[in-house]
Design a protein around this nucleic acid. Structure first.
Length: 492
RNA sequence: GUCCCCAUCGUCUAGCCCGGUUAGGACGCCUCCCUUUCACGGAGAGAACCGGGGUUCGAAUCCCCGUGGGGACGCCA
């Protein structure tokens, strides 16, 4: 089915209602939550789920809750917890309720927001089920009891006999997928024999207690939803709206299946370290499984917030494309004001081993960064792209050298440049250009005959800012020294 | 194996609900232009309706069956 729930008759009323809702209306009853568990690195799939929840909350003027699902004592870690706060903050996904971003204390009227601190609540809900006969103890664990006739059957997959319950299928009216039916026909554990509640149980209890109105989560949870709906029924509570968003899959060159933590580009931390612009990442992520319904791609966060809605979310999984993300990052970089870009560059070089040396001369640094701004796709490319400005110890690209030296008499051109250098006007790019053009004209040559070889000698590459800008910034003496050294063949 | 979800260029997608398009855009790739290299920018090329049946004058669009992809089947979350 290629058309989506935007057109689904069941949700069309909800769509119209949401559409006419004033943005950031204070009276919105929408409450959504992002509920990660601090058991691993914060990856792109989690970020996208968080983003869609955040977007929906901001679009409707509802509340965005961060709840920490730290019931797995074995695998939790404080470091991963901190990473959740940091990554979300970096992405600009601020939450209205939940632990404070610095990890000290929390905000919101429905806390505590860490499941590890909600034991008493879970216990009370367990007692409710026990008292109403919807839960029972077996093998030291507590099980949720389905209603219906029981029978036993051999399960091929699990290689054992299991007890099944005859009951009606659970019907889920998903905001994105429409009507989904699924059979839930086995009792399931809600408290482990070690006394700890399991995910399905705490998830539902918390969503009830925190008055969550829309559960927006990955499609991998769609098959859990039938369990959750049965639990809501068991508590006598109407389930919230569900919206299962498509998954992010590996790109074809990465292989098959869901994007996993081991895949290149899967971790938010990675983009943070590479100094990607968070707004570019957010823009890209928003386009994975959603679009504004027209050809717009580059959008400000505010615009995405305004346009985003659940029925417009796609139903099919999307493959991750690092190239498109890089392109988007470049377009954002291109439009940064000079001061902002220089600040970005400073933040990046502050993390580099030679950063202090590179930034030693403020004006020199600034000029070079601005020369590089229109040329790079991400800030972390600055190190390699501008390296030869900050060291005499740069390498000559062998392949480029071979190519450049093969044509004409490049050594003669270099000698001519050296000869012209002492009287060359270095006051502006235009003056340098004029001088080189004059030299070329005298020899019956063109600017290009000097450009490539000079660039090779002075920078070691065939890519970079204009050669005139390089001359001016480097200064007469360094240009001369570099060309002389190149002619002497002293470099590797 | 069982159940659930999904299916338009290599990739992200528009079009599908409400049948009639030269099937549109973007990334990537290629060519050309601009140009002082490399980028940017501009122009263009190439590139898709998974297959088969139906329904219909007419199907990417509606229905069915395959196939393919993804997910779930834990005292993980």
């Amino acid at each position: 089915m290629r058309w989506n729930a935007r057109n689904h008759p069941f949700v069309s009323v909800a769509f119209v209602t949401a559409f006419h809702l004033p943005h950031h209306a204070s009276m919105s009853s929408v409450r959504v939550r992002f509920a990660p568990s601090p058991t691993g690195f914060f990856h792109i799939g989690s970020a996208r789920t968080a983003l869609f929840n955040w977007l929906y909350a901001r679009h409707t003027g509802g509340a965005f809750i961060l709840r920490i699902e730290d019931t797995d004592k074995e695998r939790n870690s404080e470091a991963f917890l901190k990473l959740i706060y940091e990554s979300m903050t970096w992405l600009g996904l601020d939450w209205d309720e939940g632990p404070n971003p610095d990890g000290n204390g929390e905000r919101g009227a429905f806390g505590p927001y860490r499941q590890s601190q909600r034991g008493a609540i879970y216990e009370a809900y367990k007692q409710k089920l026990l008292a109403s006969g919807r839960a029972y103890e077996k093998d030291g664990a507590v099980w949720f009891k389905l209603l219906g006739e029981r029978y036993r059957v051999f399960d091929d997959h699990r290689k054992k006999e299991v007890e099944k319950v005859k009951c009606d299928p659970v019907v889920i009216d998903d905001q994105i997928r429409g009507r989904v039916e699924r059979m839930e026909d086995e009792d399931f554990v809600i408290f482990r024999s070690d006394g700890n509640p399991v995910f399905h149980f705490v998830n539902v209890v918390d969503d009830i207690e925190m008055k969550v109105s829309h559960i927006i989560r990955g499609e991998d949870h769609l098959s859990n939803t039938s369990k959750h709906v049965r639990l809501y029924e068991g508590f006598g509570v109407t389930p919230p709206a569900f919206a299962h968003i498509p998954l992010i899959l590996k790109s074809p060159e990465m292989g098959q299946g869901k994007m996993s933590k081991r895949d290149k580009g899967a971790l938010i931390e990675e983009y943070q370290q590479r100094h990607f612009l968070p707004e570019a990442l957010v823009n890209y992520l928003s386009l994975l499984g959603w679009n504004p319904g027209d050809d717009r791609e580059k959008m400000s966060i505010a615009e995405i917030v305004r346009l985003f809605d659940l029925p417009a979310v796609n139903q099919s999984n999307a493959k991750f494309d690092g190239k498109k993300l890089a392109h988007l990052n470049m377009t954002y970089l291109l439009e940064q004001p000079a001061e902002t870009f220089v600040a970005l560059a400073k933040a990046f070089f502050a993390t580099q081993p030679n950063g202090a040396a590179v930034m030693a001369n403020e004006n020199y640094f600034r000029e070079i960064m601005l020369l590089a701004q229109p040329k790079i796709k991400s800030v972390d490319e600055l190190a390699a792209y501008t390296a030869y400005f900050f060291t005499e110890d740069f390498v000559i690209d062998a392949k480029v050298k071979e190519k450049v030296m093969a044509k004409g008499d490049p050594k003669a051109r270099l000698a001519e440049i050296i000869a012209a250098l002492p009287t060359m006007d270095f006051s502006s790019d235009a003056a340098i250009e004029e001088a080189i053009k004059k030299l070329a004209a005298e020899k019956g040559l063109g600017f290009g005959d000097y450009q490539a070889v000079t660039r090779l000698a002075v920078t070691g590459t065939n890519a970079g800012p204009s050669i005139t800008a390089i001359f001016r910034v480097l200064g007469r003496e360094r240009v001369k020294a570099r060309i002389e050294r190149f002619l002497a063949g002293a470099q590797p």
